[in-house]
Simulated scan of single mutants.
Amino acid sequence: MSLHGLLDAVAKDAALAEAVQAATDGNRMHVDLVGPPAARPFTVAALARDTGRTVLAVTATGREAEDLAAALRSLLPPDRVVEYPSWETLPHERLSPRSDTVGRRLAVLRRLAHPRADDPETGPVSVVVAPIRSVLQPQVKGLGDLEPVALRTGQTADLGTIVEALSAAAYARVELVEKRGEFAVRGGILDVFPPTEEHPLRVEFWGDDVEEIRYFKVADQRSLEVAEHGLWAPPCRELLLTDDVRERAAALAEAHPELGELLGKIAEGIAVEGMESLAPVLVDDMELLIDVLPKGSMAVVCDPERVRTRAADLVATSQEFLQASWAATAGGGEAPSTSTRPPCGPSRTSGTGPASWR
Rank of each mutant, 00 (worst) to 15 (best):
E88N: 09
R308V: 13
V192W: 13
D67C: 11
D8V: 07
N27R: 11
R98G: 15
V301W: 03
D8C: 04
P343G: 07
S86Y: 06
P124K: 14
P280K: 05
A46G: 01
L109N: 00
A316Y: 05
A69Q: 13
L289N: 06
E211Y: 07
G333L: 01
S167V: 12
P91G: 02
D79F: 14
V226N: 12
A71L: 04
W206P: 01
L76M: 10
S2W: 08
D291P: 03
H256D: 13
G35F: 08
D220H: 01
M1Q: 09
A170I: 08
C344L: 13
D100V: 14
A328T: 03
L278H: 02
L224S: 06
A312R: 15
Q21V: 00
D220A: 00
S74Y: 02
G123K: 12
D244G: 12
C302T: 06
L95T: 13
E228G: 12
V20S: 00
S74M: 11
L240D: 09
V245W: 04
E18I: 01
R358Q: 03
R49C: 03
G144E: 00
A355N: 04
P234A: 14
A251F: 02
H30D: 05
D284M: 04
M298I: 07
L201K: 13
L241Q: 13
Y215P: 05
P343R: 05
F42M: 03
I290P: 03
R133W: 02
T317F: 10
D208T: 07
A279N: 06
P91N: 04
V128C: 05
R237G: 11
V177W: 00
P85D: 08
L322C: 03
D220G: 00
R105L: 14
Q21M: 01
A22S: 04
V135N: 03
W326N: 01
K141D: 11
S96W: 09
V185H: 00
A168T: 09
D284R: 08
S318N: 05
P194S: 15
E287W: 05
P234W: 12
L322R: 07
A15Q: 07
S167Q: 13
P200S: 06
E212K: 07
P124Q: 13
V315L: 10
Q139T: 14
P343L: 07
V203Y: 04
G264T: 09
G160D: 14
T61A: 06
G274K: 04
H229Y: 15
R133P: 01
E320N: 10
G264H: 08
A39I: 07
R180Q: 15
E83C: 15
E88H: 13
L56I: 08
A150F: 13
L282A: 07
A107W: 14
L75H: 02
D303I: 11
S2N: 13
R80C: 12
R222Q: 09
R246Y: 10
V192T: 13
A46I: 02
L109E: 03
E261A: 12
S347I: 05
A45S: 05
A327Y: 06
H199E: 11
E334F: 06
A14M: 01
C236R: 11
R133C: 02
R358P: 02
T196Y: 15
R98A: 15
T122Q: 14
Q21P: 00
S74C: 10
G187K: 02
